[in-house]
Amino acid sequence: MSEDTRSFAAPPEAGPEGGDLLPEHESRLRGTLAGLVRNRLALFGLLVLGTLLVVGVFGSWLAPAHPTAVDIPNRLAPPSLDSPFGTDHLGRDVFSRVLVGARVSLQVAAIAVGISLVAGVTLGLIAGYYGRLVDDVIMRLMDVLFAFPAILLAIAILGVLGPTMTNAMIAVGIVFTPIFARVTRGSVLSVREETYVRAARSLGASDLRLIRLHILPNVMAPIIVQASVSLAFAILIEAALSFLGLGVQPPNPSWGRMLLDGRDVLRQAWWVTFFPGLAIFFTVAAFNFVGDALRDVLDPRQRSVIESRGRA
């Protein structure tokens, strides 16, 4: 166990022979990147994510048509050179909507994971560092949130708060908080008693300083892996919520909402549901590939993709 622990709480003098024992932060970063590039699936994932980032930022400029421009005479037109993904029931260009929808989906997922990351890591640090009653109270609270299937909790929260994009981000943020708290707490427990933490404590470092400078940097690896995997599931949950009419509201293009719109015209126009679904699939797969590879490189003990998938 103690050997395992050292693998990501690597003190500076540890040699590189231990596989993922990398001596300094820079070499660790370089090692991570090299590991990701070596893994072909991860490279594919990175390429997809890079493309998505570009599309997310420049989507509205890249889109050949305005994503909400209605063109009734041209409704349900099949894919063609003019509109590669066809048009929907209002004659809107599906390709342009998929491009612009990327921003909405990524934005909701990123903010939701951001909320859970900040809340979960803070709670996990406090629980793991202070232990005893504080730990018990926080972790039992997390157990309670864990006792709901993720999407159920999100639906319930949106059911009472009302279906808006902001509420969807808050709901998904709450749903993912316990997993970050658990991952962080577990790692804190294993580094809390490391010699370098004790040394810093004996030199009179304050709790805040200890947590910020000595504990947090050494528990980041599993958190980064978790964040990457959670992004995949946040995209899925956001799409599911929007598909149920509880997330992003029209006329904003979101991939999940587009599936809902397309479902009613499925018989006449398969393209309205096919392409947004494909976009969700590639995005989720890309985050999963990168998450898997990051785990192999940074935190070989964790099986987070499998465990977190269950949560979604």
């Binding site: 397309g262 699939f281 989720v284 999963n288 998938r309």
Partner: peptide, 10 residues
């Protein structure tokens, strides 16, 4: 693992 179940259903 990556396929959205609701899309697969449709």
């Amino acid at each position: 693992i990556s396929i959205p179940d609701f899309w697969m259903a449709i």
